[in-house]
Simulated scan of single mutants.
Amino acid sequence: MSSRTARLQPSRPWPAMPNRTTIAAWCFLAPSLIVLAVFVFWPIVYSFDLSLHKWKFSADAQEWAGFANYARMWRDARFWNALGNTVYYTAFTVPLGVALPLALALALNRAIPFRALLRSAFFLPVIASFAIVALAWRFMLDPDIGLLAYWLSFLGMPHVSPLRDPNLAMPAVIIASLWKNLGFNMVIYLAGLQAIPIVLYEAARIDGANSFQQFWNVTWPQLRTTNIFVLVISIIGAFQVFDPAFVMTPGGGPLFSTETLVTYIYRQGITNLNLSYAASIGIFLFAVVFLLTLAQLRITRSWED
Rank of each mutant, 00 (worst) to 15 (best):
residue 15 P to Q: 04
residue 19 N to F: 05
residue 23 I to L: 13
residue 25 A to M: 11
residue 26 W to I: 07
residue 29 L to G: 01
residue 32 S to L: 10
residue 34 I to T: 08
residue 37 A to M: 07
residue 43 P to T: 05
residue 46 Y to G: 06
residue 48 F to N: 03
residue 49 D to C: 05
residue 52 L to H: 08
residue 52 L to V: 05
residue 58 S to Y: 04
residue 59 A to K: 07
residue 64 W to L: 09
residue 66 G to T: 02
residue 68 A to V: 03
residue 74 W to E: 02
residue 81 N to R: 08
residue 83 L to P: 01
residue 83 L to N: 02
residue 84 G to R: 06
residue 89 Y to N: 00
residue 91 A to I: 02
residue 92 F to R: 03
residue 93 T to H: 01
residue 96 L to R: 04
residue 103 A to P: 00
residue 110 R to H: 10
residue 112 I to F: 10
residue 112 I to Y: 12
residue 113 P to V: 15
residue 115 R to E: 13
residue 129 S to G: 14
residue 135 L to W: 12
residue 136 A to Q: 14
residue 139 F to C: 12
residue 147 L to Q: 12
residue 149 A to T: 11
residue 156 G to N: 11
residue 160 V to W: 13
residue 169 A to Q: 12
residue 185 N to F: 13
residue 191 A to R: 08
residue 194 Q to F: 12
residue 198 I to K: 12
residue 209 A to D: 00
residue 213 Q to T: 09
residue 223 L to P: 05
residue 223 L to C: 10
residue 226 T to I: 05
residue 228 I to F: 07
residue 232 V to P: 01
residue 234 S to M: 02
residue 238 A to L: 04
residue 245 A to P: 00
residue 249 T to M: 01
residue 253 G to R: 02
residue 257 S to Y: 05
residue 262 V to L: 10
residue 266 Y to W: 10
residue 267 R to G: 01
residue 279 A to M: 12
residue 291 L to N: 09
residue 298 R to E: 14
